[in-house]
């Protein structure tokens, strides 16, 4: 990324949205609908000022990015979306935050993430599964074998990044090298 003067850095806000719809919504359709609603309401000039972008969308929850002083305008334009790809839908803004991380943690419920939607797989021999949530060094893992969490009553296995690279370190002999 090209470097830029810190004082001229563009400030952003992230809108956590939830889409309520009668059927399945694809991210591409949602992007197209939001873009057309924006152009219809503000024209190209206003759209350029909003700098609205889709960051992510998983079929229900999503993240949008916009300019920091255009949040109310973006809220209004999202409210004018009444259907997505021919399906009746409504976009609800759940909250607005300054970083992707904070918006995700505060406004997007993590428990609704489906394990098979996630691509990051972990296999440690004793336990294998897919990563549900990563926060710092802490990792929540949805295990393939549900029996492993039966004793504690939790849904996910709690791991750290240390667990994942530990074996490798042992394997090439660096952990006891000193």
């Amino acid at each position: 990324m090209r470097s830029w003067l810190p004082v001229l850095r563009d400030r952003r806000r992230y809108l956590a949205i939830e889409v309520e719809a009668e059927g399945r919504i694809r991210a591409a359709d949602l992007t197209r609908e939001v873009r057309s609603a924006q152009t219809s309401l503000f024209g190209d000039l206003g759209a350029a000022k909003n700098r609205l972008r889709m960051i992510s969308f998983d079929g229900r929850f999503g993240l949008l990015r916009c300019s920091h002083d255009r949040t109310e305008v973006c809220r209004a334009l999202l409210a004018t979306v009444h259907s997505v790809g021919g399906t009746r839908a409504a976009i609800r803004v759940r909250g607005i935050s300054g970083t992707i991380k904070a918006a995700t943690e505060k406004y997007i419920p993590q428990s609704t993430l489906q394990p098979d939607e996630n691509e990051r797989r972990v296999d440690l021999g004793l336990v294998s599964g897919s990563v549900v949530r990563v926060h710092g060094r802490e990792i929540d893992l949805a295990p393939d074998d549900q029996k492993i969490t039966e004793g504690s009553g939790t849904r996910y296995v709690g791991l750290t990044s240390f667990d994942l690279c530990g074996e490798d370190i042992d394997a090439d002999g660096t952990s006891d090298g000193l």
């Binding site: 309520e20 719809a21 009668e22 309401l41 109310e72 305008v73 809220r75 209004a76 999202l78 409210a79 004018t80 009444h82 009746r88 839908a89 409504a90 609800r92 803004v93």
Partner: peptide
């Protein structure tokens, strides 16, 4: 005429301000 037509108070305020 449907729950999909409803908008929250904040959204209504944002639309009205336009």
């Amino acid at each position: 005429a449907s729950h999909l037509d409803l908008r929250s108070p904040r959204e209504a305020v944002a639309l009205a301000s336009l």
